[in-house]
């Protein structure tokens, strides 16, 4: 047990949506994500660029700050914040 507390603090989660074909591979989202959630993928999109992908298969590390969508010049990435009600149901 990492923490000795009964109720662990849960960080908020965001779900990352990438519109691959809009991406022109500038890499801003990868560079500026404070949690390091994204990396460059090997696939090509319609324009011939490498769109980003998640570092881990699940996006647990994303806390939904939304900075990626704010700086993306092509509006190719956005975040949906996961609501906390879900967590309460799980409890």
């Amino acid at each position: 047990m990492k923490y000795w507390v009964k109720k662990e603090l849960k960080p908020p989660h965001g779900k990352v949506y990438i519109i691959k074909d809009r991406c022109k591979g500038c890499g801003f989202c990868i560079e500026f994500c404070p949690q390091g959630v994204l990396q460059e993928s090997e696939e090509f999109n319609a324009k011939g660029y490498h769109p980003p992908k998640l570092v881990e298969t699940d996006d647990k590390k994303c806390i939904g700050c939304g900075f990626c969508s704010l700086i993306c010049p092509e509006f190719a990435i956005h975040i949906e914040k996961e609501e906390e009600e879900k967590d309460e149901k799980a409890d």
Partner: peptide
């Protein structure tokens, strides 16, 4: 605050923001 890390005051056994 969305960042959770260990609290040094609690010998890192309790989380803080």
């Amino acid at each position: 605050c969305p960042v959770i890390i260990p609290n040094e005051f609690d010998m890192e056994k309790k989380p803080r923001k």
